[in-house]
Design a binder for these strands. Structure first.
Lengths: 211, 211
DNA sequence: GAGGTTAGTGTCAGCCTCTGACAATTGACA
DNA sequence: TGTCAATTGTCAGAGGCTGACACTAACCTC
């Protein structure tokens, strides 16, 4: 943020991002045109595409930050931790750290509402799942290196990470459907669901149906 | 397939589908325009959109058949089977049944090559993951009903199905990357990876690194 | 501080996906 | 054979996205 130029650029980008998220969450992603976003910030449509690769890119700009944060958190876990435990700790601590990371760019409330929009917009949900898949690949390589196994010969890193990702997806989905759209709620859901994976796989659900 | 009209429609649809998949797999999905597909079958662009909701819809027309087949296979499993075992049997038997199901519409080889294209095309991969998520939701409800639990109150059905789906994704990915693009190869990979989930989750990979 | 350099922006033209409207064609059926 | 209905083609247009080029504003040097 040295020169006037850079500050102006930063401001334009943030204005575009905020306008985009605001429009997406209020009137829907599909019903928001790039022209509208550009007009709300009073720049040309062409300028929008100079800051974002497309509508989708704007929709996930904040998510991208939290993903990076999560990867860094996994990398920072002590080497003696078992893989799944490292992932669990990283995600739980990640939910706490989001507030600080995100709020530099966008109101935290807007970011949380955007989750709902993503979950209920087919095109965005698809993009979200693909992004998650990419992150999982990164994490799988990271864990494989940590544990000293070959990620291409041994399927266990990818399997473990995929299972973890699957639990996270179910968590997000349930969280978005509920009323309590707070960080505390998602943190609690995350821990709860991670604890139930084992029980879910053994598959004797009929024994105790009062879950 | 009674009237001449219906036969013509069927032929047009199959011609469009085959032309689309052929073009997608040879010159790439993004580099194929709808105009090209329509021209290859000698119909107007508008007609293509009367048969398919979009390029993407054409790309997944065959996958949609196999997904339905899988859901039906799960529904047909005996009630005494544990959930995960039912899924395992359904998918393994599904891989065998694909040949018959698919070949009525498209050469089996073309369908298998399409998997690779999907896996290597970001837009298609995203759509594929979303479709899988939708199928998983269907299966989760099915299993919940089978086991007599409430799918919205008890997270275990969704968790189990999500984990299963995660394993399938890793399997598909590895299969597409390899050389042997046959049904036997994917069947074997599927069984192998399903067997390794437990081992992957316990997370003591360092003990035996020779997987 | 004037003048040249560079970065960011606006404008314009164009491609591609997809949709609605209307007219033309073709199969179905009495 | 003539009417009816379904299928198709044509046309126009919205919306996402990109390349080219000119213009403006910030930067940097003298």
């Amino acid at each position: 943020m040295e020169t006037l130029r850079e500050r102006k650029k930063q401001r334009t980008r943030e204005a575009l991002l905020r306008a985009a998220l605001e429009l997406f969450t209020t009137q829907g992603y599909e019903h928001t045109t790039v022209d509208e976003i550009a007009e709300a910030v009073d720049v040309s449509q062409r300028t929008f595409f100079r800051y974002f690769a497309g509508k989708e890119d704007a929709a996930f700009a904040v998510q991208a930050m939290t993903e990076e944060h999560f990867v860094a958190a996994v990398r920072a876990r002590p080497a003696h931790e078992a893989p799944m435990e490292a992932l669990r700790q990283a995600i739980l601590q990640g939910w706490d750290a989001i507030r600080g990371t995100v709020e530099t760019a966008v109101p935290i409330d807007l970011h949380l509402r955007m989750y709902r929009t993503i979950e209920s917009t087919p095109a965005l949900l698809a993009a979200h799942l693909r992004r998650s898949a990419a992150t999982e690949e990164t994490i799988a390589r990271l864990l494989a290196e940590r544990e000293g196994v070959d990620v291409d010969a041994d399927p266990r890193p990818r399997l473990a990470v995929a299972v973890f990702g699957a639990v996270m997806r179910v968590t997000e989905r349930q969280w978005c459907k509920g009323d309590d759209l707070s960080l505390g709620a998602v943190r609690q859901l995350t821990a709860s669901y991670l604890d139930q994976v084992g029980s879910a796989l053994t598959g004797n659900w009929r024994a105790d149906r009062d879950h």
